[in-house]
Structure formats: C-alpha cells, structure tokens
Design a protein around this nucleic acid. Sequence first.
DNA 1: ATTAATGATTAAAC
DNA 2: GTTTAATCATTAAT
Length: 399
Amino acid sequence: MLQQQPLTGNGPSSGRGLGLSDHPGMHALNSVQQPSQHRSDDSALEGTENGHENRRDIGDILQQIMTITDQSLDEAQAKKHALNCHRMKPALFSVLCEIKEKTGLSMRNAQEDESQDPQLVRLDNMLLAEGVAGPEKGGGAAAAVSAATSSGGMSPDSSLEHSDYKIKLTQIRCIYHTELEKYEQACTEFTTHVMNLLREQSRTRPVTPREIERMVGIIHRKFSTIQTQLKQSTCEAVMILRSRFLDARRKRRNFSKQATEGLNEYFYSHLSNPYPSEEAKEELAKSCGITISQVSNWFGNKRIRYKKNIGKFQEEANLYAMKTALVVRQGNDSPHTPNSTGSGSFSLSGSADLFLGVPPVNGDQAAYPMGVQANGNWNGRNSPPAGASPHSDHSDNSD
DNA sequence: ATTAATGATTAAAC
DNA sequence: GTTTAATCATTAAT
C-alpha cells in the first residue's frame, strides 16, 4: 500500500522499498549486506558448493551486527538525522499518523474534560477568603482576620489576640506558596521533559503535535490532583488554626479589674433593669476597653448568674451599692436623693454594710433583710418569690 | 489536682 | 435583632 511507485517519483532509484535505498541513511544497511553478498552473481542464488561459504556469511552478518553496537553515537545520530531529512519522511509520517488516528490508538483519552474541578474551585475560593492564596502582604492578613471575625463584631480590639494567629497564618501561607511553587516547577519541568521526549520521538514515531498537546493535558490533570491535595491540606490547616486561635474560648482572658468594676457598677446601679441600651453598651465598652459584644456577653452572663444565685452576689451587690451610695452622697448631700439604684429597698441604706447574711435563694420563705435586691421583674419565671421588697421598681435610671 | 470563676458560644424562644 | 439557659474551655484559686 505504501509502495505506490508514482508517489516516490524518484526516477533514478532502483524502485525497491520506497526508494529509500538511495538515501544516505540507508547505506548503513546496505553496507551491512553488501559484503556478504560476495558478488551479487546469480551464483549466490545457486548456492552450489557454498555450504561452508553460507556459514561464513552468517558469521559475517553476526559480526556486523555485533559491530553495530560499537558504532559511535555520532554515527547513529547522523544516520537518524539523515533519515529525518529524507524528503519522503513527511509523507510517511502523515500517513502513519493517519493510520494511528484511525486505529484509535491515540484517542483513548478523547474526551477532553475542560470542566474545571469544582472541588478545586471551592478550595481556591476558600484559600482566597482566608488570605492564604491572595497577595502576600498585610492586605491578605487583614482580609483573613476580617473574614475570620465576621461572625462576631469584634474587629476593633484584640489585635494582640490575633497576632499569634497572624503569625501562624503567615507560616501556613509561606509553606503553601513554597509548596505550590515547587509543584508548579515540577509540573512544568515534567511537562517540558515529556514534550521534548515526544517531540524527539515524533521524528521516528508518528506522534502528532495534537497528541503531544493531549499528553500535556493528561499530565496537567494528574498534577492537578496533587495540587488539590495540597490545597485541601492547607485548608485543613487553616481551619484547625482558626478553630484553635480564633475560637475565643481558647484564648479567654479575664477582664481587667477596672473593666469588671465598671460593669458591675452599671449592673448594680441598674439592678431593676440591667439591660443597657445600645448607647450604654457603647459607653461601657469604651470605658472598659472591651467590645460591645463583650459587654453584651458580660451582662448576659451576669444576669443569669445573678438570678440563679442571688445570695452569692449579695455581698458584691452591697459593695457596689455602697460605693454608689457614697458617690451619690458625695455628689449630693441630701439623704433622700433617689440614687440610680433601681431597687427602692436599697436607697435608704445610709450604711449599707450589714446585709451580708445570705440565705439559700430557692427557699420559699425569704424572711431576711434584702440588702440590695432587684424586684424580680427582669428575671421573670424563675425568680424566687422573695417576699421582701414588694415595691415595684420605678426609681430608675440616671438617664 | 480539684474546684470555682468567668468569658464565650450555642440553641431556642421571643 | 436580643435574651435566656445551658454549656464549653480557660483561668484563678484552693
């Protein structure tokens, strides 16, 4: 099928075997054979009286074959090059490629899924959101922190708390980037290697550029799985880091003494309605050096814990009540001044120091002098009956 | 080493 | 949205 005579078109050739015999590259083969052809007379075909001569030929051939391995590399290279330069080579190449294409050898991975891996996209987005994949400057860290603190509005302060986190995040980012770089380098290296190899082989083998491209795609897909793994583990590390460093429960610091003092002051001076407004919260947050969320948390905790065991807080209540009273007395000499305490039963205590007898709270009968007691309005259902001080609270806030 | 105190988180209710 | 009640996880105190 490949021996179409007109295709060769090389007139002077002997017309055998695609006419390659006159190519310089083929001389090697000829040269192997020719010596054994001791005078291509017809006598060779006769083979008369040549039993031992044939044996000698075989020996010669073997000898020649053995010498092939001794041929210098340059020589072989030259032959190859000569073969590549043959004018029939492109035609033969294309024909062989066509055959290969038809036999489906090269179309095993025909379906080129150009679809991006959704998981990889997801990981990319996550890393970007965490500031790992983004720019390596402060902007990235800031973005990470802002993203991390998105759950609670606690961005203004606790930068000290975040510094550790930032350091670790930077470490992760560095590792990630170096690994990614290594990965990319290895990928390109391998790809170029394979491409060079295939290109080289395309001289002697029907390998189309299309196939090379496809091969590159396959390689990239393989490497992509590695990339996915890298990104996944990075994500995991970031998540662990976040859960460990940004979960404030693990980094709880007690408030400063003065902060607690200020909060308690407000709480006990608004005991009848210890629900600071937004403005009051802001004020408290500013004066105590904590966030509004922390103020809210503190009041939430305080209310529930106070309500749960009023007796336990009696001393504290008296303490702050006295403090407030003293402040009020300093500010205003009148003993009947309605101070800011919510409970009417408290304000009359000129010396609020002996209300420390603390009975069990849940007892049905509370026959004791309540030093400072909120009327149980705000602590609705569970509030102990606390028969003392049935006055409804009304004298209230200083605002 | 235990325990109490405390700030933060969570689910559920409003 | 906030608040309650329970709970967690850490810190301070015993």
